[in-house]
């Protein structure tokens, strides 16, 4: 099967979308001449020109705000924030403007914009460049939220997101850009559907983004111990595919939710509550959570690595869930 890096898949998705939709305009810090902080938009300036791949000043609030205004008036902007940590600077534009405009204005308009950014640990980028802030987005009605775990999903999700009429927050993982994955877009489920990345009957791991990879690695190790783990990759947090989650949960009766964002009031809390509410009679054990520690991300590599779930900690949690330790 063909292989592709996560970064190249994103670029291909953007490129093909721009070729078919002349209203797409990319806005961001160093997206043009520099090619993007992580190289995703490299070469797009050359193909589409500086009107359509526009560098902005380092003004996160206005670059996202301008994207909202442009989306209200006929364009489909793709605003890029170098790091999701900088979303704090643009939060009003997302939360009070983009997410609310359709409802607040009685459905007379939609805001077809995308905000692309990346988050997560893995580069010792420290406390202001390593966070996983998807819970803030998920907590805001009106926004779609995609978090691809591999190259195929990076490609199919960005392409679909760029056909939606609603605002989409598209969060990539900095630890995945350079990795190669099997690339098979035809195999991908539709937008808003989770996928079973590994089948198993003993317990379910619900995860997304880079934690899919770690969960799969833990599951492979657990298979050697005779524990058959099912790994569900959510792919999008809005829409949230509870149907697929529920099916897996009712099959296995045991659930571990794994997220990189911090534990308290994080995505894992929401997922755990939803799974419990909707499947109470089917659960053999309480839903367990593995999430990032409730700390600012430290720079020292060993500390950074210990601040988020690892293959080993996921494995230990599953053993606990299976009462094998």
């Amino acid at each position: 099967m063909k292989e592709m890096t996560y970064r190249d898949a994103l670029r291909l998705g953007l490129q093909e979308s721009m070729q078919s939709d002349p209203t797409i305009v990319i806005l961001g810090e160093e997206v043009g001449r520099y090619g993007g902080a992580y190289g995703v938009t490299k070469g797009l300036l050359h193909e589409f020109g500086e009107d359509w791949v526009r560098d902005t000043p380092i003004s996160e609030e206005i670059l996202v705000g301008a994207a909202v205004g442009a989306a209200m008036t006929g364009l489909r902007p793709v605003a890029e924030l170098m790091y999701v940590d900088f979303i704090t600077l643009a939060m009003d534009q997302l939360v009070n403007q983009a997410a609310k405009i359709r409802y607040m204005f009685g459905g007379q308009i939609s805001v077809p914009m995308m905000l692309r950014s990346q988050g997560g640990t893995g580069r010792s980028a420290a406390a202001q460049h390593s966070q996983s802030l998807e819970a803030w987005v998920m907590h805001t009605p009106g926004l779609h939220l995609a978090m691809p775990a591999d190259a195929t999903d990076a490609y199919v999700l960005i392409k679909h997101a760029l056909t939606l009429a609603d605002p989409v927050i598209f969060l990539e993982h900095k630890g995945l850009y350079a990795q190669s994955f099997p690339f098979n877009p035809e195999s991908a489920p539709p937008w808003g559907r989770a996928k079973i990345s590994r089948s198993g009957n003993d317990c379910s791991i619900i995860c997304y983004s880079r934690m899919v990879q770690r969960s799969l690695e833990a599951a492979a190790q657990l298979a050697e111990l005779g524990v058959r783990v099912e790994v569900v990759d959510l792919r999008t947090l809005h829409p949230l595919d509870m149907e697929t989650v529920t099916k897996s949960v009712r099959k296995t009766g045991r659930v571990l939710v794994v997220t990189e964002d911090c534990l308290t009031a994080g995505v894992s809390a929401e997922l755990s509550a939803r799974i419990t509410e909707e499947n109470f009679e089917y659960l053999e054990e309480p839903v367990l959570r593995m999430a990032g520690e409730d700390i600012p991300i430290p720079v020292a590599p060993a500390l950074e690595a210990a601040s988020v779930p690892t293959n080993e900690s996921i494995k230990q949690s599953i053993l606990k869930l299976m009462r094998k330790k």
Binding site: I62, G65, A66, A67, V68, G69, D92, F105, Q108, I109
Partner: peptide, 26 residues
């Protein structure tokens, strides 16, 4: 708001209009 009239909305956030018109201007 009335987008057909080019009115992008009154806004409850002080200073919210200028970013929107930068987008509309683009």
């Amino acid at each position: 708001a009335d987008l057909e009239k080019g009115m992008m909305g009154a806004n409850g956030i002080v200073g919210a209009g200028p970013p929107l018109i930068c987008g509309a201007g683009l």
